[in-house]
Structures are given as C-alpha cells and as structure tokens.
C-alpha cells in the first residue's frame, strides 16, 4: 500500500505547476463553544498539504468533522488554533481565488435570480463589465455541459442540473482552489457518475486544484490523487492514501480495476475501524 503519514506524500504523481503547496494545513484544531459548558472539540489535530493541480478527497466516518474542516479551510469558520495557509498566506476570510461548492445546491443557488444571473454574481462583485460577464457565463455553462438554460430559474432545473450550475458559478471567476462539500450527495446515482466525470474534466480544462469532502469511499478513490482519511471526532489525520490509478479515469474501466478494489478495501477498513 502506498501510503504516507502526515504532511507530504512522497510517491504521488508530479502534478505541481507552481512552487510550494496551494494549501498547507498545520496542526489545525477547532473547538466549538470553547470555554463553555457545551464545549465540543470537532477537530483535534489535522495537518496536510495540497499541491497545485492536485485532486484531494477527504473521507471519514459520519460526524468526523469533515464539513467543519472544509469550512475552516475555506475561511468560513475561524480556527481555534493551528494554521491554514492558502498560497502561503493565512486565511482571514474566504480568499479571492478560492471557490466553494456546497452540497445543498437548492439552497445555495439564489432562487430569485435566473441561471445566468446566479453565475454572474461573483463576476459582478469583481466588477467585470457586462459583455465580458455574458461571455464568461456562456463559457462556464458550456464547460459544465449545460446549454441554453441561462434565462431559466434554478428551481426549474433537475437536481443534477442545479449542481452543474453551482459548479459553473464557482468556476466563473477562475479560482485556483475549489472546495467541494459532498457536492454529489443529493443527486441520483447516474447523475452522480456524470458529475464525477464532469468535475474531472473541468479539473483538467481549468487546471484548478480541488479539495472534495465526501462520505462515499468509491467516489473518493475514483476522483482523487490522494485521499485523506479522518478519524472519528475529534478528528485527526488517520492516513493519507495515494491513489495510483491510471488517468484519465472512466467509470467502467477504473471501477473494475483490481487496484481500485484494493484501495477501496483499504480505505473502507480505515474508515470503519474504530
């Protein structure tokens, strides 16, 4: 088994393009309601690094603080202690070049805006002029495999299509790093496979680094270059597993690979072992 503990995996494919990790997490700790009677330690001690262009999945048993970790990393929650550096700088708020896709697309898309206007929101915030906005919206809609739906509203689309819109919105401002919190957990199995392939394709096209939280081990193995396994709360990094499956991956071929089965088995043992 090609594994390595702690920070940097040694036997990973050389995907880094820039110098230094995109994301580096050192002794991250998160305690809710610190100092109060209902104090709860969600994350005990988590350290890892993510190189540019890498696809990292975070798995763990339910209640392992996966979502908390992602919220801390993306700057939505303050850390109790430790550091999370994005491109070498500490995160005060959500950094400009970071995108986040939430699980609940139906709540995270604004129902009062059409699809185009939803996607254009981050561009408007960045004061991109109207023509460039329209061009960009068309581009990302095509990139996520949605055609001419710009004038429609999120609630007029199916779940899978809505999540595509959410991904398109995150891509609109070309982030360096994309955080995804169980992005495919609320769609049916077939749509899920499609979206998995979509995100792999988008990763290649845009060269974006992706950190994806999931509770689905198959999904983690299928998507990731490395899988970070968290222990039950208060979480620690149990192991970082390098996924040495051939690329590009395909649902039919990759999932029937012996290596896939072995990795899956190993991760399953890690996650279910208490």
């Amino acid at each position: 088994m090609t594994t390595s503990r702690g920070g940097v995996a040694t036997d990973r494919e050389p995907t880094a393009r820039g110098s230094g990790p995109v994301l580096s997490v050192e002794s991250l700790r998160k305690v809710y309601n610190a100092g109060r009677a209902d104090e709860r330690e969600a994350i005990a001690d988590v350290s890892f690094e993510v190189e540019a262009g890498e696809f990292v999945c975070i798995v763990g048993p339910s209640g392992a603080g996966k979502t908390t970790l992602l919220r801390c990393l993306s700057g939505l929650l303050p850390l109790t202690s430790g550091t999370a550096l994005f491109e070498g700088a500490a995160m005060q708020r959500v950094p400009e070049q970071v995108g986040v896709v939430f699980q609940d697309y139906s709540r995270s898309l604004f129902p009062w805006l059409s699809i185009s206007r939803n996607i254009a929101v981050p561009l408007k915030v960045r004061k991109v002029d109207r023509q460039a906005r329209e061009r960009r919206v068309r581009e990302v809609l095509t990139a996520v495999g949605l055609g001419d739906v710009g004038k429609r509203y999120p609630w007029q689309l199916s779940g899978g299509m809505q999540q595509r819109v959410a991904i398109a919105r995150a891509l609109a401002y070309q982030p360096d790093l994309l955080f995804m919190d169980e992005p495919f957990a609320s769609v049916d199995a077939q749509t899920r496979f499609d979206l998995e392939d979509l995100i792999l394709r988008v990763r290649d096209e845009y060269g974006v680094t992706i950190v994806l939280v999931t509770h689905d081990i198959d999904e983690a193995v299928y998507l990731a270059d490395r899988v970070i396994v968290l222990s039950p709360a208060p979480s620690q990094v149990k192991e970082i597993v390098a996924v040495d499956l051939a690329k590009p991956r395909s649902q039919a071929v990759t999932r029937s690979d012996e290596r896939f089965t072995a990795l899956r088995q190993h991760l399953l043992e890690l996650v279910t072992a208490s």
Partner: peptide
Amino acid sequence: DPLQLDTARVLHMSPLR
C-alpha cells in the same frame, strides 16, 4: 438561510451587497 449567507461570503459580496 445561513447557507445563503455563507454563499454570499464565498462569492465575496460586500456587506451592503
């Protein structure tokens, strides 16, 4: 919905916006 407020932060909206 707090998720909509999170979304606003993720999209870097100013408080006024």
